[in-house]
Design a protein around this nucleic acid. Structure first.
Lengths: 160, 160
DNA sequence: TAATTAAGTCAATATGGCTGACCTAAATAA
DNA sequence: TTATTTAGGTCAGCCATATTGACTTAATTA
């Protein structure tokens, strides 16, 4: 993109500034996940378990199919993690009205873990955004949203 | 954090809004990395290779130690990836003035790959932020920066 | 009844991280 | 100058997370 620079007019749109955004994404995402990671390690779980617990906690009664479509991983990748969560009774399975489907719900134990993990991220984010005004936070959310692929933007809107 | 909500006054600081940010981070980071991932797959490299190439490209002559401190992975994790990059001549090693150290530089081949990968992310980000005004983009960058741990904020500033 | 869908399972493979132990060579401090 | 620290490398082994492809069962829908 040696040529891109020449096309760009405002300062904040030049390559160097965009590269800073690349790095901000890398560093911030790493620190965003490190808190829960440390808790998960103790109970021999990983980030994948957290994601499952997070989205089941968000929508109790989620089906496997819905979860797969959010996580965008293969059935096999999910099943390993999910089986562990069910075996250790963080998640409870039940049959849906369509009897081919299964509904996932958090047990009390699962809810407790969900809260523990999410609270780390919630308080971290709270401590960040409390020092900004609404304009900055809106800019943050709007831009971050547009960084998502359009198809996944839809998915985000569906679950929210 | 059943209690946090009661302490929070502005709407954008409540738990539900913060949970949206958690999801925005998850979805946006995934899509942020997916472009380069597809290119890397073809040449049997992974995201770890991209990171090395990215930061060596950013600062030619980087030492192993500096790279480790940016990536925050173990020597062993780096060495596997780095050895492949050196063997396949994407990266060239040379001895520093302090003869214990080694300097990493991108070869022509390495530079070409760096540009190819980064351009995907640069154009993606460009296409997002071109539609926002400076206020939104500044909010985005400021908040994202503060999402980084303080120690790593320093590191970000050092390399920029 | 046939086709599709939701879910589960098998085996094999790759990436990317980790630990701990141990080594060499060079630079620096006592 | 000797002792210590630092930069880097390496070995073996482990674990988490992802993948593909093939195949099965049971339920729903065309």
């Amino acid at each position: 993109m040696a040529d891109l620079n020449k096309l760009l007019t405002p300062l904040y749109l030049n390559e160097k500034e965009i590269r800073k955004i690349i790095e901000l994404m890398f560093f911030s995402y790493r620190d965003f996940t490190s808190g829960p990671d440390r808790v998960l390690e103790k109970i021999k779980f990983g980030r994948a378990h957290h994601r499952v617990i997070y989205f089941v906690g968000k929508k109790n009664g989620l089906t496997i199919k819905e979860l797969l479509s959010i996580l965008q991983i293969t059935k096999q990748s999910l099943s390993r993690v999910l089986n562990q969560l069910v075996k250790e009774k963080f998640i409870i399975l039940s049959t849906g009205e369509d009897k081919r489907t299964k509904k996932l719900t958090l047990s009390k134990k699962g809810q407790e873990l969900e809260i523990k993990l999410s609270n780390i991220q919630i308080t971290n984010i709270y401590n960040v955004i409390k020092n900004f005004d609404e304009i900055d936070i809106n800019g943050f959310k709007k831009v971050l949203f547009k960084m998502i692929d359009e198809k996944n933007q839809k998915k985000f809107n569906e679950i929210n």
